[in-house]
Write a protein that binds this DNA or RNA. Structure first.
Lengths: 216, 216
DNA sequence: TGATAATTTGACCGGTTGGTAAACATTACA
DNA sequence: TGTAATGTTTACCAACCGGTCAAATTATCA
């Protein structure tokens, strides 16, 4: 047969799994750095250490590779938000959400940049994902936050913009890493910058969301 | 003569000014959407409404266009931070800095995305600008913030990470516009989202930076 | 107006792009 | 072991890429 590729016969070969893994790893490297249009199949093949036709045997087109990559990464990327627990203590939930997001920015910067590139370029490939699963998840957690505010456990605030601001402040350390390093300078740009960031952001959000005297 | 181009004879023609303006406008449109590598000269020429050789008459290379664009935009992009006034009232300075940055995200989203693309892709073209003028400016304003903290006018905090968090939260509404709209949904994604964001961010930063009981 | 400089264009170039065809090599498994 | 399915490679293609060139057109100004 000539066309088994990703269109499996039934179950994936060991070789298929290994190679697809290597390809997606290389694709992450390249797409996250140059975006979809700026990335080239040749470059991905080179990083993956295989010939271009070989790569195209597993993923028929550049777009198919990109789709597969996005789908896989998006899922794990949303895990921290899923863990956000309605039954937990608001302050510690928010604190640990910030911490988890910051850890992801530190440990998986390429994944963060992949999405950032996607958003910047209009997100035409994942708009459905955004309007569907992502929106639902955020709606759900926004309701939790709103309930906390209503119960007087945290200050009243727009839960959506709260989530946005946690996303943006934490992902900043992955997406704008070059700028962060340049501004901090050599002495402050070491690994400690994530600890400093965590300390600052926790202070900002915890104090910023503390309950105030309500206007009558 | 054959090569006056941007290498001016002495003063620029009216035609030169107009065309260079049109080209940079088109370049902003395309570069901000696709990044340097993803953008094509043909596409920029099409958006600018002129032939490719004509465009290359004004800017010899794609890189020259990009450089000219970055240089021009970077300068105005930093204006809000320059206005940050040491003599002013800390709370109102921070408040109005947030507001100005948010207005820029609303009114000049392409400029914001241009830089975001640049950062994501390693910023090799502007690394010097970052380590030089940008770092100096931030260092200067960080000193101001530190002084405010020491004087007990705002809470003690890392001034660099404070600036980063203002940058990221505000620029988020330009760079991740697609995501913001998708998550907010049709009813909340109208123009009012900037007002909502401003209200939330002011609350977050003003409360978050309010002076607390100092640990001894 | 005429001549000179500035601008615009169509045709073109070598290199790269995403992708294909088919021959060849390897693996799985009866 | 044999053989069919799976995996890999070499050679290649048309389209597109950034950029050049010389000829044609338009603006400038003495």
């Amino acid at each position: 047969m000539v066309l088994p590729r990703a269109a499996r016969t039934q179950r994936r070969t060991r070789i298929q799994e290994e190679k697809e893994e290597r390809i997606l790893e290389a694709a992450l490297e390249v797409f996250s750095l140059h975006g979809f249009r700026g990335a080239t199949v040749d470059q991905i093949a080179e990083v993956a250490g295989m010939s271009k036709p070989n790569l195209l045997y597993y993923f028929r087109t550049k777009e198919a590779m990109h789709r597969a990559l996005i789908t896989r990464v998006l899922d794990t990327w949303l895990d921290p938000l899923r863990e956000f627990d309605a039954a937990g203590n608001p302050v510690s939930e928010i604190r640990s959400y910030i911490r988890r997001k910051l850890e992801m920015a530190r440990d998986f910067p390429r994944e963060s940049r992949l999405f950032a590139n996607e958003m910047l370029q209009g997100a035409t490939n994942i708009e459905d994902e955004l309007k569907g699963p992502l929106k639902s998840l955020v709606d759900e957690k926004a309701a939790v936050i709103r309930a906390w505010a209503k119960a007087g456990k945290i200050a009243r605030c727009d839960p959506y913009h709260l989530i946005f601001s946690i996303w943006s402040t934490t992902q900043h350390y992955a997406d704008f890493d070059v700028q962060v390093r340049a501004v901090l300078g050599q002495e402050k740009a070491g690994d400690g910058r994530f600890e400093d960031a965590a300390r600052f952001l926790e202070q900002l959000f915890i104090n910023g969301l503390e309950v105030r005297d309500a206007a009558p």
